[in-house]
């Protein structure tokens, strides 16, 4: 197990956006979180990544490589990033005025050890780190096939590339678990196809939790699916099980009208 969400609730005023949701993600899996709009999927992501402090419940992250366990409640978003969780957003959030390379380099901040003081007196640790960051950033760009655009300003990239860059920047923070919020939104079919290939490639190194509306992509990629509706967990199972689940079908299509 790499992450477990336990009895998570998030209440905004009178609205229970997330209502007692529990689920887990195993190492190496692709897990999909699906559900109609407003079901509370992104709120779950925001709770997990520390943007919201959940009203109830907890999230645990297990890093087997470093044999650490983190309870995310009370941790700030940057501490959670250091606990090796990374995410992307529904509406792409790049540093638009910075180059593609710089966007990725910012992601490497997490791993760097040298301090400002090292930078001022240019210690060997600092120089070594700066050099390796540049090399590592280029290799990330290659991995995401963005190296040709390394020195372009992020805002000038086509939409599909921007998506990929956002994932690349998250990847640069060295996550064990990557949370993708609707990565296929706004992509054309061939871009979606490429994205699927990328996710399959990423899965070999990183566990992935994704929110997605593109059902053919979800059915193809996901090992397990959780379905949310009205803030609650409605169903859970393999893609085949979910496809044939009555509750899920009615949540998406509405109750059948009959007498």
């Amino acid at each position: 197990m790499i992450m477990s969400v336990e009895n998570l609730s998030m209440v905004f005023g009178g609205l229970r956006a997330v209502d007692d949701v529990s689920f887990h993600v195993n190492k190496g899996e692709v897990v999909a979180l699906i559900g109609p709009n407003g079901a509370g999927k992104t709120t779950v992501f925001n709770c997990v990544t520390g943007l919201y402090v959940p009203t109830h419940g907890d999230v645990f992250v297990y890093d087997n490589e470093n044999v650490t366990e983190h309870k995310l409640r009370g941790m700030t978003p940057d501490q959670i990033t250091r606990a090796r969780l990374a995410r992307t957003f529904q509406n792409i959030r790049l540093f638009d005025e910075m180059t593609v390379l710089e966007n990725v380099m910012v992601g490497f901040h997490v791993k760097l050890k040298s301090r400002l003081f090292d930078a001022i007196i240019r210690t060997s640790l600092h120089k070594k780190e700066e050099k390796s960051v540049l090399a590592d950033a280029y290799s990330v760009l290659e991995y995401f096939q963005l190296e040709e655009h390394a020195n372009d300003v992020a805002r000038s990239l086509p939409y599909g590339y921007r998506r990929r860059l956002e994932i690349a920047r998250a990847y640069a923070t060295d996550p064990i678990l990557l949370l993708l919020d609707e990565p296929a939104a706004g992509l054309n079919p061939s871009e979606t196809e490429e994205l699927s290939k990328l996710i399959i490639r990423l899965q070999k190194e990183i566990t992935i939790l994704l929110i997605e509306h593109d059902m053919s992509m979800v059915m193809k990629l996901a090992d397990r699916i959780y379905v949310m509706d009205h803030g609650q967990l409605l169903a859970h199972g393999s893609p085949d099980e979910i496809k044939n689940d009555k509750d899920v079908i009615s949540a998406y299509l509405g109750e059948p009208i009959d007498a």
């Binding site: 943007l51 940057d78 250091r82 910075m98 910012v106 997490v110 930078a119 700066e130």
Partner: peptide, 27 residues
């Protein structure tokens, strides 16, 4: 060109996102 300079630009463009990719905000 410096790392802190990049961190400053990242923070000024999108603070939430900068925090999420691990930029040390307070520093």
């Amino acid at each position: 060109y410096t790392r802190t300079g990049k961190a400053m630009r990242a923070l000024s463009q999108d603070r939430t996102m900068a925090v999420l990719v691990g930029v040390p905000t307070n520093r």
